[in-house]
Nucleic acid binder design. Structure first.
Length: 465
RNA sequence: GGCGGCAUAGCCAAGCGGUAAGGCAUGAGCCUGCAAAGCUUUGAUCCCCGGUUCGAAUCCGGGUGCCGCCUCCA
């Protein structure tokens, strides 16, 4: 496996610190709102990475945190009249639902910030003890960036005035210093700590939870791979790395991976631009698997410009796969090793080259159709083809559905019954060669957005875009 | 201002020095009662200029145009 390290800026052979095992940590959501397509993309990229690593035989420990306490959650709670716990719970559940809908496997561990306060306090104490942190008069605790000789090495920045836009706090020693602990003096949400009541800084969360829950063995790095969106490289990951480096005797991650943004109209999705696209809304119109296939279809490091035309083109590509699966429907066959698995692992093992993987799948579909035309009854062939679908489903997370259900997304039972009724009538008309009548019935189905195709096994139908 | 990314057929998109993958759309053919589906087939010299090389989309230099990070952010 080769992965591109976004800190070293080169593609490296992946070598885990513990033989046969991978520790992977990805920054998860702050649960104050629904997940948008950008969250989906990030989750999908690292879900794919996890599947590929597992496909290569590694035992993967995949941690993804949930930030369930944060100013944004507090603000949302104030607006809605609910408690921060209720807000966090609501959006955590929504997040889990949305991720499940697009086939993102649950992580091995999903630590919550509010349940890890003691781990954070422990790290703060270490930083205080070692002189990397200081307390100001109001009780806030800051990380002293000047004491970390490695600071800014991650994001390749100069330590000058370029980091001057962070919140002005007069007592801070350096402008770039960031909060580890924010003291709370009123009755807003707070946690007890050796430093008094307060709330943890966001950056601290990941470092502390990694140290507490994910690190395994005494190695130069706490974990193998740390991932997240490209916008997290600075300051979030820079700060995480600094905290870990200064509180312990190791670096945070051996490899850093950052995924590109989902853009709309060429611009990054953001609330201020008003171009956020919630996953749950996309899921109303499209099968989660269609969204997964589309969002995963280009290389993870590049930006992904979302638009519906491309989504539909992408769906047509996935449709081909499911039409092939229809031809295998109703067959039970043992799962065997497939060449497809090997060739997919080869290209995906090259920094997740999904474009090549998709090309392989296209070629698989074409050749499978040809072979089925030539030998429709060949049981060995069918067994291999079905096994290939199993491979796809395991490795890439699509192709696992019932193919008929796939083509009937979103239709209610009454409509399906109506469609079948029309198709039966048409079949009868065809039988007596009343083509005028059968074509009229087909037109009626077309008007309903239904395409039909006559096959040796009878007439089948699909929803059209 | 500092740092970084991108620019390949109508559209999406691989490519990492050896003569342009794949998909969608389009035209043609086979198949079909006709369709659809499936299969076959059709098309780009790679933003511009200069350089290195036997050879460059791929390396170097200079432009142009987009985008991002530097503030919460996947």
């Amino acid at each position: 496996m080769f992965i591109y390290d976004s800190v070293k800026k080169s593609k490296l052979r992946f070598e885990p610190q513990n033989e046969g095992k991978v520790s992977l940590y990805v920054c998860g959501p702050t649960v104050y709102d629904d997940a948008h397509l950008g969250h989906a993309k990030s989750a999908l990229v690292f879900d794919l990475l996890r599947r590929v690593l597992e496909g290569e035989g590694y035992e993967v420990f995949f941690a993804r945190n949930i930030t369930d306490i944060d100013d944004k959650i507090i603000n949302k709670a104030l607006q809605s009249g609910l408690s921060t716990t209720e807000i966090a719970q609501r959006y955590s559940e929504a997040y889990h639902q949305d991720m499940a809908a697009i086939g993102v496997l649950p992580p091995t561990l999903e630590p919550k910030a509010t349940e890890s306060i003691d781990a954070m306090c422990e790290m703060i104490q270490k930083l205080l003890d070692k002189g990397h942190a200081y307390t100001i008069s109001n009780g806030d605790i800051y990380f002293d960036t000047a004491t970390d000789k490695g600071y800014l090495s991650l994001s390749n920045r100069q330590s000058d005035d370029n980091v001057s836009r962070v919140e002005k706090v007069s007592e801070k020693r350096h402008e770039a210093d960031f909060a580890l602990w924010k003291a709370v003096h009123d009755d807003s949400v707070s946690f007890d700590s050796p430093f008094g009541k307060g709330r943890p800084g966001w950056h601290l969360e990941c470092s502390a939870m990694i140290e507490r829950y994910v690190r395994s063995g005494d190695h130069p790095y706490a974990i193998d791979i740390h991932g997240g969106g490209a916008d997290l490289l600075f300051p979030h990951h820079e700060n995480e790395a600094a905290q870990t480096r200064c509180s312990s005797n190791h670096e945070l991650a051996k490899y850093w991976m950052h995924n590109g943004f989902v853009t709309i109209g060429g611009e990054k999705m953001s609330k201020s631009l008003g171009n956020s696209f919630f996953l749950k809304d996309a899921l109303k119109a499209y099968d989660g698997e269609v969204l997964r296939f589309y969002l995963l279809s280009t290389h993870y490091r590049g930006d992904f410009n979302f638009n519906e035309e491309d989504l539909i083109a992408s769906k047509r590509r996935l449709d081909r796969l499911y039409r092939l699966k229809k031809r295998l429907f109703g067959l039970n066959a043992p799962i065997v090793e497939t060449d497809l698995k090997q060739s997919l692992l080869e290209v995906l093992g090259d920094d997740l080259n999904v474009s090549k993987a998709y090309a392989l799948i296209d070629e698989f579909v074409t050749s499978a159709n040809e072979k089925l035309d030539a030998a429709p009854k060949d049981k060995t062939l069918r067994s291999v083809l079905l096994s290939s679908f199993d491979t796809l489903n395991t490795l890439l997370g699509f192709g696992g559905q019932n193919p008929y259900a796939y083509f009937q997304f979103g239709l209610d039972e009454a409509t399906k019954a109506r469609i079948n009724e029309l198709i039966d009538k048409r079949s009868e008309a065809k039988k007596i060669k009343d083509f005028a009548a059968s074509d009229a019935l087909r037109d009626e189905l077309t008007a309903m957005g239904i395409a039909i195709m006559d096959t040796p096994e009878g007439t089948v139908w699909e929803i059209r875009d």
